[in-house]
Design a protein around this nucleic acid. Sequence first.
DNA 1: TTGTAAGCGTTATCAG
DNA 2: CTGATAACGCTTACAA
Lengths: 356, 356
Amino acid sequence: MTTSNVTIVEVARRAKVHPSTVSRALSPGWAVYVGEATRRRVLKVAEELGYRPNALAQGLRNGRTGVIGVVVVDFEHPFTAALLRGLEIALEAVGIMPLVTETHESSERLERALDHLLARRVDAIITTAARYGDAAIIDRAARQVPTVLAVRSLPTERFPTIAHDDLAGGALAGRHLLELGHRRIAELCGPLDVSSFVQRQEGFRAALSQGGVRELAFQMSAVSATLEEGKRIARALIGSADELPTAVFAHNDLVAVGAIDAFAEVGARCPRDVSIVGYDDLTLADHLVPPLTTIQLPSFHLGRLAAEMAYSLIQTPDTPPPTVSLPPTLVVRASTAAPPRTKRPSARPSRLPLPA
Amino acid sequence: MTTSNVTIVEVARRAKVHPSTVSRALSPGWAVYVGEATRRRVLKVAEELGYRPNALAQGLRNGRTGVIGVVVVDFEHPFTAALLRGLEIALEAVGIMPLVTETHESSERLERALDHLLARRVDAIITTAARYGDAAIIDRAARQVPTVLAVRSLPTERFPTIAHDDLAGGALAGRHLLELGHRRIAELCGPLDVSSFVQRQEGFRAALSQGGVRELAFQMSAVSATLEEGKRIARALIGSADELPTAVFAHNDLVAVGAIDAFAEVGARCPRDVSIVGYDDLTLADHLVPPLTTIQLPSFHLGRLAAEMAYSLIQTPDTPPPTVSLPPTLVVRASTAAPPRTKRPSARPSRLPLPA
DNA sequence: TTGTAAGCGTTATCAG
DNA sequence: CTGATAACGCTTACAA
């Protein structure tokens, strides 16, 4: 039960050598300086005793822990799992372990998370949780260890950054809707103190105005990426418009699904009356009613690259901060279609009999 | 950039006291033994210098790291996120940080994960990744630190365990199908070297036989919880049966959805021709076509309890291993219905015109 | 090729 | 109330 800690001293005693010899015998780089016979003896004893080096002591002594701190918003976020898998695979290859924490979008938690990671002397930090207000907090961490911004960037270029190209993603959504013939278009944004959403909006608007269209004025943005929140703000949109939009770009899939529900409540069916584009390409997005048109992100790849970036910064700390941006893909499914030919439904359309 | 590590010695120098005094001043329990004036001075200097205790050194010295190792199968698993959230909340309350790793169902990875965690001298381990073949590996860890089995148990009662009551879950599924009137019933199992699936099967079969029904013989089980795998084994089931079942219990939601697809391929629609029960109650399970009848699990709660169990084992290591089991809930939606009244469809039904 | 010794940053114990 | 000391487990100049 309670730790029966075999230390290097114990191994040394049993192998009748000095602890430093054990250390050398066990350390790949130095093993060559140890006599063949003693090395084998040490290895055997270590094996028998089930010796495992104490990573705390090693870290303390070496100034390197072999751990990279990773801060994510939420394990449930659509791309978190893929991103972490990419990270893991890349880090495992170089013998580094990720230490992952969540912020749930709270800056206070972010601060605590960074404190914890720094206290544990991680060799680098990768954060996907940056909001604009967090620059100072993150800067404090970056002063201590190499810190990579993944997924969410900050206005400054001080930090090494690797993100999805959300400008391009927003543009894909915008052009798709224009090409289908939509002109009354609205947007359901995520929090606008997060780079991802700012850029989705910017890219989307740019695409629309290239087509000579300006999106419906609507200020509210979704505070969380949930179905309920999507319903809530979509209802607000519906209530605020004189005339319903024929197309909506939602900044993530769950909000998109919530919006589909909200429109259904007032008798506007997707895609017949309203087209909806999501973002993230959730698992099963193709099995929803209707199958969701959405933007797919290379999150696994992003995770790998973020890990590689962090690792190379550990090796070479004083490098100008690189900025990488990964292109998304439009996945067209059945939640988007041409706008209704007939007179568009008014804000309060005649009550249609809806299926339960 | 590179760490400007302020140590306790530096703080001591600036506050003109001995390091041990700084240590006392900063440690809640011992601060009372420090003069009011010096204590304030130390705190001020520490604050100014941005001193953060080195958790490695503390861990080395104290023999406690304030870290609990958590091993999960996959961040993408339906209940992993909820479970981790529960864990986090409970651990945060007692100042402990979870260190989470994935196994992806590989025993080799499990072994490596446990090695890593032990090397980092975690105060306890919680694993949700146990397969029957892993007993020895896990036992090795349990010899070093308190180790809790969560979600997946092992045949032995040596380990403290907290799991969903999958026996009950399987029974809920079975009774539901019987009550709808089904008699030709099949099961799509998960890997049968995992307690969860063994128990789902056992509970399900027990319920059926109480109703005088024996499930269709079918050996194959899904190696992973994915839609593709669900399709694959459902196709095998369909191909192997003389007559199609009117109801299927899938051991998880993704396999259930895959099965729905596979049945659709041969013209058997869900729930008209075949009823399907899933397991896990995925996010958006209610928005699929058709909305999925499934078993819901209290994973958040399980996470909390697992954390509490681990914590109490840290405090009181030599306690008889407790076993806790949490009841699931049946969520009835539209993927289950009464069996078709008319002649059941044969293995190769007349080709129905399917919608694209 | 192996041993010696110092130190990474903390804190428990013992003196004063 | 505060200071000195030793030790947690490991690595690495340096010496032999």
